[in-house]
Amino acid sequence: MRRSRIYAMVGISWLALTLATLAHATWLALFIAPTEETMLDVQRIFYYHVPSSMLSLVFPYVNLTASIFYLAWRRSEPLRALTADAVAIAAAEVTVVYASISLTTGMLWGRAAWGIWWAWDARLTSMLLLWLLYVSYLLLRKLSASGQSQTLAAALSVFAAIDVPIVFLSIRLWRGQHPAPVFGGGPNSGINPAMLPAFGWNVLGWAMWGIFLLALRYALERRRQESEQESALKAIEDSLEIAR
């Protein structure tokens, strides 16, 4: 069996499993999890907001690792460096998707719970900065015409990743509008145990979805690289024909 067909079958099976997991997780979040006492039903945004926010702090490290490998291999092993570069751009785009969701759902929740769409507190501002950093990473790759855009973007990703621990620690170090940490935030933190299954299934489902997006975007980038290499080879062959 062709390798591409095996990849397609694995991808479709993974997607089916992911969608089933997300359907179950959404049903738990909307219909089974108990209603929170103060915020009432709008608190159910939590089950989508928190997993997306968590994942928006995980994919930058995939981007960082791939970028470091790209920088290390770009001269000695250019073909392997291209593979690392494809992983890096895929992870950066998935980061922007999850950070966009974190900001959007956070604002919708904030307006209903606090009466305001936005507050310039440490968590919200550092998350907005994270989003801007990875959008600028993608813009750099899209618009740079220097021929060094992959190297420049890899260097930028090292600096962008510095914002990730700042986002994570922001609600632990500074008090602001955003609530204190739900998990690992001290003796008064934590949620009702009856809410944990809905939360856990949503973390699992959105993580599986993120892995699916990462693999799909990686496959697209590899196709583009292959197409560019073919075009370059064809141009060389054509120029040799003319020289003869």
Binding site: L40, V42, R44, V97, I101, T104, A112, L216
Partner: peptide, 26 residues
């Protein structure tokens, strides 16, 4: 109510962003 609209909008926005991005890559 605003609560209901915002919960609906948040869930719809998540599926629109994720689904739109996946469709665009595909």
């Amino acid at each position: 109510s605003m609560q209901a609209h915002h919960l609906f909008a948040a869930y719809a926005a998540v599926w629109l962003i994720q689904g739109g991005y996946a469709a665009w890559i595909a």
